[in-house]
Amino acid sequence: MSLGKFLVRRILQGIFVIWGAITIMFGLRAVSPGDPANLMLAEGATQELVEQVRREEGLDQPIYVQYFDYLQGIVTGDFGYSWQSNREVEAMVIERIPATIELAVAATIVAIVIAIPLGVISATRRNQPSDYGATLFSLLGISTPNFWLGLMLILVLGVWTGVFPTGRRPVGLGEAAMTFAQTGSPGDLFTWLRYITLPALTLGTYFTALITRLTRSGMIDELGKPYVTASRAKGLPNVLVRYKHVLRNTMIPIITVLGLQMGTLMGGAVITETVFNWPGLGLRLIDALDARDWPLMQGIILFIAVAFVVINIVVDGLYSYLNPQVRE
């Protein structure tokens, strides 16, 4: 199968999955207890007002009509209005995306920068103190709930030593970059960096641990393969063999696992944003859930599902490009 054909098939599958996700969300709303009209209105609203809202929202229609209206709305990009603030859901989702992406990217960078060297050291110095240290670290990393880790980082690096600030960030990357472009003063950028460090460490630790484990076991496998012995016998320097060939082959399975773990990253972002009061999508999702604000909640969850499906298609494409055998 060619790469193009493979991708087309994956995209069709992805569309089917997204349709399924939309249907699940609709089903959840349909079975949820409580009349939405009552939730939308203040307590003590008159019966006429409730009826009027039901008509306006199409809640008096048969369920299949509501379903097709709902599908139509989503296809045309209309996710409705938040019950709490009466603002457009699309706008409320879009304005929160940058903060979440900043956090997710920062966490991924933290993970890759720490984990790959750690995994390589661990694999090449097996059963030495540095290997034990890395193993212990990765065991702790995959076993620590990130909300607790976040609080402990706030406690130690924020409250006790005051190295990093602990409140809500005063400035986003976009504004900070603007200020820098206009005035040439990097002050805001530094502030941004100081505020993102602890959240990025919190969200990134699980992935750092995971990638360290994968790099270690992958490198150990690869180092035992005949081509390594052959390259060494040919006289290639160890460094070249390790970093150019072995590490490269180790990366392929790591990319797949990272793709599969994007869901964990997104779930982790929801929690991390709550701990640090980080103004991203996750924090807004929790607010929407607390208020039982259905349109907003659905909008955010569907956005996350679509993002997740798209990321997985990209990862699959990347993987099959690197390793054509999976297309068979």
Binding site: I18, A21, G263, G267, I304, A305, F308
Partner: peptide
Amino acid sequence: LAFPALVL
């Protein structure tokens, strides 16, 4: 699997 476990 289209939903992150925690979000679902």
